[in-house]
Each structure stands twice: as structure tokens, then as C-alpha cells.
Amino acid sequence: MADNEFGYTTWGMDWVRLAEPLRQTRPDPLLPRARSIARNDGVHAVTEGRIVRAQIHRGGQASVTHIELTPLARTAVTALTGIVGVEPTLLTDEMHAAARAADIPVAPELAAIDCSCSARTARCVHVLATFYDLARRVDEDPRLSLDLQGFDHPDHGAAPGDSGGAPETPRWIPLNTLDPAMFFEV
């Protein structure tokens, strides 16, 4: 696995699998361009908690991607702490294998994806380039993979339905729940 440019650790390979899922049956023509963009530092990503915002510059065009990750469940955080420790400085492939053997989900799960490009798809070249850039960054520091899933903030990283935390504010409000009288005078 050391010959891979992206995902040479098992932590980074989880991020490559977002761009190259195993269930994919035919080649994706966007993957070579996405790898090229990530390889040539065309992705400028900023992480805030479980959210990644990236600016991708390609030629004279620029796009902004927004990726939000599902938080680890409180039970997964507790079990994972027993394997990697409270403040791990270095995560190894053996720790990843131990977490998998204990059925602890460590692979990132996406909650929301958005891109400002005109493709209007969740698998545009900009999102794929962001996945590759994140895979490279996770290969350098595997702790980033867990941090993006809320491991470092167990109070804020509880999945909806977990006990012990404040209820999560919904991202969207259904239109039929709004009262027009609140906005207009009758």
C-alpha cells in the first residue's frame, strides 16, 4: 500500500474510498482530474469541527465545496478511547485494525455535500479533489480523521438520538411548519 499517492495509511484509505467506492463498477472519468488537482495543491481546505470548506482553483475557474461529516456515536467514542487513548499523538494502522475488529466505525460518513460549481452533483470533480486532499492530510496526521468526526469534542460529537447531549438543531426547516402570519401582516 505504500505505493499509493493518496491513502497509503488505512486511515487515509478510508477517505480515498469516499472518492473510489468499492461498489463502483466502471471507471469514473473525473478521478484522474481530481487527483491532479489535489496533487498540484489546487485544493485549499479549512476544517471547523465536522465541517470542511474547500476552495478549488482550476485554470480560471474557482469553486467552493462544503462537506459535513456525521459525528461518531457516543458509544463509538467511548470504545475508541479504549483503543487509541484519550489524547493519542500517533494513530497507527494497528489501532485502525483493532477498531475494525471491535466493530467500531472509524470510516467517515458524509452528512451533507455541496459545491458551487454548475455540475450540481455530489460527485463533481471539486468534491472528489477535496476527498483526495483530505486523504493526503489524514495520511500525514491520522488524528485529523477522528477529529473531523467529533472525536475530540465528545459533547458536540454525539450523534442524534444519543443520550446526554442537547438536541441537534435541524439543518432545514420544512416549509409547511412555518406560519405565514409570523412574516406578514394580515
Rank of each mutant, 00 (worst) to 15 (best):
D3L: 01
G7H: 03
V16N: 01
R17C: 02
A19Q: 04
E20Y: 02
T25I: 10
D28H: 01
D28R: 00
D28M: 04
L30S: 01
R35I: 07
R35E: 00
R35Y: 05
I37W: 10
I37A: 02
R39E: 04
N40Q: 11
D41G: 14
G42I: 09
G42A: 00
V46N: 09
V46K: 07
R50W: 03
I51S: 06
R53S: 08
I56C: 00
H57P: 01
R58W: 06
G59I: 07
G60S: 14
G60Q: 15
A62N: 08
A62Q: 11
S63V: 02
T65V: 08
H66L: 10
H66F: 07
L69W: 07
L69I: 02
L69H: 05
A73D: 00
T81W: 10
V84L: 05
V86T: 13
P88C: 02
P88Y: 00
P88N: 01
T89D: 13
L90Y: 07
L90H: 09
D93V: 06
D93Q: 06
D93I: 04
E94Y: 13
H96T: 14
V106Y: 10
A107R: 07
L110F: 12
A112K: 08
A112G: 05
I113C: 11
I113G: 10
I113D: 09
D114C: 04
C115R: 03
C117F: 12
T121Q: 10
A122E: 03
C124M: 03
C124L: 02
V125P: 02
V125F: 08
L128H: 00
A129L: 01
A129S: 09
T130S: 08
F131H: 04
D133H: 12
L134E: 01
R136N: 10
D139K: 03
E140R: 15
D141G: 11
R143I: 11
D147L: 14
L148H: 04
G150N: 07
P154N: 09
H156R: 14
H156A: 13
G157V: 11
A158M: 13
P160K: 12
G161A: 03
D162V: 05
D162F: 07
S163P: 08
A166S: 07
E168C: 03
E168G: 03
R171A: 12
I173E: 08
I173R: 15
P174E: 00
P174W: 04
P174V: 05
N176R: 15
T177D: 05
T177G: 06
L178F: 13
D179W: 09
P180T: 14
F183K: 13
F183N: 06
F184D: 09
